[in-house]
């Protein structure tokens, strides 16, 4: 226990330094981020989300996808029909104007997630901080959540896996999807693998409930659209640059 306390003190010390909001370079203001300590339970004071600027998303670039696969140990096994894809690059072409949009699509971390509503065992759940996850310990692999998801954000594991990464357990017969790099958030990191990997800064990760956060500031300035907003799911992932 003393070891943990020691660890915690060290961590809080580092965190309080970040709290002071000092600037490391001219023009770049560090935000007052509440970094979570390891032994702290998540609360609904935060809601984590992503903002994607489709104007900055480059055609053909797959850096975010490669980073996600690397981070979470996703590999090519039996082909695109059955392999897991937590994030995918979608190219959209407007049927009338021909306007082309590029965007990564992943779990939208809805506030009203249909996957959670339909899950018979409660394995699909929404964490207090808004991240939608699968408790694979009680997932029976019925795939009803995949039927219900409007974004095809979930993948079923179709074969026995080996060499999973310690922070990303995954296995045959259960359903999974984007975790918003929950293992990083729990460590207090304020980013995801995809956000970090984007060469153009098209993705912004942050706390939607904190008006001071970069993501909230950007949303306040230019707003952001939800995919399939008609379904009123209040998604945690928003997009900029969609016409109409």
């Amino acid at each position: 226990m003393s070891q943990i306390n020691q660890y915690r003190r060290k961590f809080l010390g580092a965190a309080s330094a970040a709290f002071t909001g000092l600037s490391i370079a001219p023009g770049i203001l560090l935000q007052t981020v509440h970094a979570k300590a390891n032994d702290e339970a998540v609360t609904s004071k935060q809601r984590w989300g992503l903002l994607i600027d489709t104007n900055l998303c480059e055609p053909g670039c797959t850096d975010c996808i490669d980073a996600c696969n690397q981070e979470n140990g996703l590999r090519d096994i039996h082909g695109p029909e059955t392999d897991a894809q937590w994030i995918r690059k979608v190219t959209l072409k407007h049927q009338k104007t021909g306007h082309v949009l590029n965007m990564p699509v992943m779990c939208q971390h809805c506030a009203e997630p249909p996957c959670v509503d339909v899950c018979p065992t409660g394995a699909s759940f929404k964490r207090a901080d808004g991240i939608v996850l699968v408790d694979k310990h009680i997932c029976i692999g019925c795939r009803y959540c995949m039927m219900a998801c409007p974004y095809k954000a979930r993948s079923f594991i179709h074969e026995k896996l080996t060499d999973q990464l310690p922070h990303a357990p995954r296995g045959k017969g259960t359903v999974e999807g984007c975790t918003l790099c929950v293992h990083r958030i729990d460590r207090g990191e304020n980013t995801t693998a995809c956000t970090q990997a984007c060469p153009n800064g098209a993705m912004t990760f942050g706390d939607l409930k904190n008006p001071e956060s970069e993501i909230s500031q950007k949303l306040a300035q230019h707003s952001g659209k939800e995919l399939r907003a008609k379904l009123k799911l209040d998604t945690g992932v928003r997009y900029q640059g969609i016409q109409g």
């Binding site: 490669d66 696969n69 090519d76 039996h78 392999d83 894809q85 995918r88 690059k89 074969e159």
Partner: peptide, 14 residues
Amino acid sequence: FTSGKPYTLLKSSD
């Protein structure tokens, strides 16, 4: 892997 395919990291461009 059991499928006989070599171990490669998935690249979406593939």
